[in-house]
Design a binder for these strands. Sequence first.
RNA 1: GGGAGCGUAGCGCAGCUGGUUAGCGCACCAGGUUGUGGUCCUGGGGGUCGCGGGUUCGAGUCCCGUCGCUCCUCCCA
Length: 421
Amino acid sequence: MNTDRIRGMYDILPDEIGWWRLAEQAMIDTARRFNYREIRFPIVEYTELFARGMGEATDVVGKEMYTFTDRKERSLSLRPEGTASVVRAYLNQGWHTQAPFQKLFYIGPMFRYEKPQKGRCRQFHQFGIEALGSLDPSLDAEVISFAWSMMDQLGIGGLWLRLNSIGCSEDRERFRAVLHAHFSRSIAHMCADCNRRLDENPMRILDCKEPQCQPFIDTAPGSADHLCPECALHFAHVRSLLDLLGLGYEIDSRLVRGIDYYTRTVFELMSKDLGSQDTLLGGGRYDGLVETFGGPSIPGLGFAGGFERLVIILQERANAKLTETSLDLFLATLGEAGRRYAFSLAQRLRRDGFSVDIDHRNRALRKQLTLANALHARHLLVIGDDEARAARGKIKQMDSGEELEISLEADTIADVLRKGG
RNA sequence: GGGAGCGUAGCGCAGCUGGUUAGCGCACCAGGUUGUGGUCCUGGGGGUCGCGGGUUCGAGUCCCGUCGCUCCUCCCA
């Protein structure tokens, strides 16, 4: 039997799960403070949902999806992101007619077929929020502020925000034409990818890192200079609200992002502790997406971030400390009567809410104590046949070594455990 | 899609210009102490040296191939 993991998919082990809980808890708590409600949606959707939502020409749809056909020959895909599913659920529930304004968040695994490396896996985990139903710049600012607040709660520093506006769909069309004209003049000197992008999606050329392309990208017009008056005003409002909240950002007119549904505000929160995968979280507006899926014209925006990257930062910066797990009581046993007595005592105390563990391997007493130590048990009770018969024994506080003779009734023990903190 | 590095016990590693039964630390198990922990001592279990082929009297070591992992580039979470 082959016990290898699937490439790019990892076990999250008990020793590291604390960092994940910490990150998830920060997400859940920030969502509570900002009043975003949790939604969970399937891991598999019709392929078309992602293809139409994210855009056929995007890298994700073009070459990174886990796509397969089911037994009825329908094309399904493992979700590569959450936004399309949230919008699908939104329409599915009829929220566009009954409750068009929604603030939602989600946590869960996503799948993209890419070469794995630090901070990039084939099964990775995202936290994300989506706010639908308002075009107001205050919602843009809130979404960005949400991201900062969450990082703040985790004590993560060394972050900066790249911000841009790529305008409404008309602006995008005009901007594409402007870029096409700009790059057409120099395309012969540019890399193969950019030659392909010129007609496919000239905005993506701005993302190119090839040295030979840089001079032409540096002189390219920025998207923020080609906004219609309405979009320009919207962008100015977003910036002024971020200023009001004291949130830092840098305008980056080259930031275009890799998914087609974005309009107007786009942003990425970057970390200098992540190496080459330095985007911790990214998002933006998608004012046309609901309509693309056949719904009414309802705007929305959101972001998604990577838990793996968050965990890397948490571990490496170690600003946060994990609390060691501990046990209220360890029951060491001797003899059959002792074991039976302890077994039933454990049941009672666990029902009362205490964490209790017991030896299951019939090991020497000394080994049981070593185990109690390793488990950080706060109290120890040795129950042998004598204790079982007399229903009395000595409970020991592990750190001080102090022993107290008590009656071995569950209530009496519970009192001692409570007093012992 | 392109590039680089690395595969020896669960983990971290050593193993010289090829030369006996492949070692060390941690972890694990047992005993010292058959009813009281963290220390210490002793012992033990664990390896197709990633896999396949080649060279050789002899390969963990050299050669070729292959698979896997990691990282970089790209893109992004």
